[in-house]
């Protein structure tokens, strides 16, 4: 033996096994989480309702009363503002929301509907 320290011993495999397990566990965290899209409905900045989109059994309308009344339609897999007493109707024109990151806002009524969840589209914000 030229050296007191052999290059490799069988027990070294233990270290490599440990490294593989750690790396594997870490990469698992990177996978998209199963977090299903959730619709969050807020009025005046306060959360009114939070519902998992896929778990809505049948169409349901939600009427938010206030100075300006807003009607929200919750359907399996999607949500939309279908009526608002506001003058601009921007929220109604926004259409149907289906994916995380999307939102419909009624400024005059201070009502917002948005979908949160694992953001597959990779969009962080919106301008316009």
């Amino acid at each position: 033996m030229s050296s007191r320290f052999p290059l490799f011993r069988k027990r070294d495999l233990l270290i490599f096994l440990l490294a593989a397990v750690l790396a594997g566990a870490g990469f698992l965290q990177w996978l998209p989480k199963s977090g299903a899209p959730v619709a969050v409905i807020e009025q005046d900045g306060k959360e009114i309702r939070r519902v998992e989109l896929s778990s809505i059994p049948q169409p349901e309308t939600l009427v938010l009363d206030g100075e300006i009344s807003v009607t929200i339609l919750l359907e399996p897999g999607q949500v939309s503002i279908i009526h608002s007493d506001c003058p601009d109707q921007i929220c109604v024109n926004t259409g149907t929301l289906t994916r995380p990151g999307q939102s419909a806002v009624c400024l005059p009524a201070r009502v917002s509907v948005r979908i949160v969840g694992e953001n597959n589209s990779g969009i962080d914000g919106m301008t316009g």
Partner: peptide, 19 residues
């Protein structure tokens, strides 16, 4: 610990050290 006390090989000890 690995090299002197537990007699691991150079590769294993060095990888563990880096980790």
């Amino acid at each position: 610990l690995l090299l002197k006390k537990l007699r691991f090989g150079l590769l294993g000890a060095s990888a563990a050290g880096a980790l």
